[in-house]
C-alpha cells in the first residue's frame, strides 16, 4: 500500500488575457504516474522548467491535477474535506530560508503548526522539543530566526513541518541557497529523519551529490518522467543525463573520466570510499 499515488497526472497552466480568453497553455506535468512506498527516500531531478515544483505542489494539494488523480495516504487531493489532513500528512519545505519562518523565536515558529491543528498546549511543547532535537536545533530554541545561518533556518523549517507529525515531507530545493556546511547539515537531517523516524522523503534538488543516498531517483524532462532507478543505475547513464541537462556527482564524473582514459573502473561509482577502494585494487593488479 503506497503512501503517495500519482495517477496519470497532467497539469496545465492556463494564461488568459483581460477578457478572460485563453492566450496560451503550458503543460507543466504531462501524464506522470508514480507511486511512493512509506519510508522511502525519493529524489526528483530535472532541468529548469521540467515540472518538478508543479508536480510537488500536487502532493500537498496546493495544485490539483487537470487530468488524473493524486492520492495521499488514502485521501484524494480533490476531496476538499480532507485538505487539512492532507497538508498535515505531507508537509512541504521550500527553497528560500528567509520566507518560511514567521515566528519571532525559533520554538514559537515550530509551535505554530500544532497550535493551528488544535493540539493541546502541553503536547505542543513536547512536539516542539522533539522536532528541534530531530534536526539538531534544540540548543537554538530561544534564538531569533534572523540570528541563524541559512542551513540552521532550513532545519527550523523542517522542524516546523515535523511538529505536525507528517508521514511525508517534500523538500523543493531546500539547499539551493546554502553554503557547503548548511547543505551538509540539511541533508544529514533529511537522512536521519528518514532512517530513524521512517518519514517518507521527497527531495527535489539540482545538486547531484545530494541524491546518492536516495532509494529511488526520478528524472523529469518536459513534464514527463524520463528516467527512474536507483542512484547507481541513474548515475551510470552519464551521457543520457547530460542530454537531459543534468550531470553526475563530481566523484562519479572523475571515475567516468578515468574510465575513458582506459582505467578499468566499474560504472556508477558514487562515493569517495568506492573510488578509493576500486583504485587500490587496480593498482595492486598493475604491480
Amino acid at each position: 500500500m503506497g503512501i503517495i499515488h500519482i495517477n496519470k497526472v497532467t497539469y496545465e497552466y492556463i494564461r488568459r488575457d483581460e477578457e478572460n480568453n485563453v492566450e496560451g497553455i503550458t503543460t507543466a506535468v504531462d501524464g506522470v504516474s508514480l507511486a511512493v512506498e512509506p519510508g522511502e527516500f525519493i529524489a526528483i531531478l530535472g532541468h529548469n522548467g521540467s515540472g518538478k515544483s508543479t508536480l510537488a505542489k500536487h502532493i500537498n494539494a496546493i495544485l490539483y491535477p487537470s487530468e488524473g488523480s493524486v492520492v495521499v495516504d488514502g485521501m484524494d487531493t480533490k476531496d476538499e474535506d480532507a485538505l487539512l489532513k492532507i497538508r498535515q500528512t505531507a508537509g512541504m519545505v521550500f527553497q528560500n530560508p528567509d520566507n518560511q519562518i514567521i515566528g519571532q523565536i525559533v520554538e514559537e515558529d515550530v509551535g505554530f503548526g500544532p497550535e493551528n491543528m488544535g493540539v493541546p498546549t502541553k503536547e505542543i511543547w513536547e512536539r516542539v522539543e522533539e522536532s528541534l532535537k530531530a534536526v539538531g536545533m534544540y540548543e537554538y530554541r530561544s534564538y531569533s530566526p534572523n540570528k541563524l545561518s541559512g542551513g540552521q533556518k532550513q532545519r527550523v523549517s523542517i522542524a516546523s513541518v515535523i511538529a505536525m507529525h507528517p508521514k511525508c515531507i517534500i523538500l523543493d530545493e531546500p539547499t539551493a541557497m546554502l553554503d557547503p556546511m548548511g547543505r551538509r547539515e540539511v541533508i544529514r537531517a533529511v537522512r536521519a529523519l528518514n532512517d530513524v523516524e521512517k518519514i517518507t522523503m521527497i527531495l527535489i534538488t539540482h545538486y547531484m551529490e545530494e541524491v546518492i543516498y536516495a532509494d529511488r531517483v526520478f528524472v523529469m524532462d518536459k513534464g514527463k518522467v524520463a528516467m527512474s532507478g536507483t542512484p547507481k543505475e541513474i548515475f551510470s547513464r552519464v551521457s543520457e543525463l547530460r542530454e537531459l541537462r543534468l550531470d553526475v556527482p563530481q566523484v562519479t564524473e572523475l571515475a567516468y573520466e578515468l574510465k575513458r582514459a582506459g582505467v578499468p573502473l566499474p560504472d556508477g561509482i558514487l562515493t569517495r570510499e568506492e573510488l578509493t577502494e576500486a583504485l587500490k585494487k587496480i593498482r595492486m593488479m598493475g604491480q
Binding site: G46, H47, N48, Q95, E173, A176, M177, H206, M208, R242, R245, L246, D247
Partner: peptide, 13 residues
C-alpha cells in the same frame, strides 16, 4: 551574487 543557485547543472555550466 550567487547566480547559479537553483539552476540545473547544464544551466550552471
Amino acid at each position: 551574487d550567487e547566480p547559479t543557485a537553483g539552476l540545473d547543472p547544464k544551466g550552471r555550466d
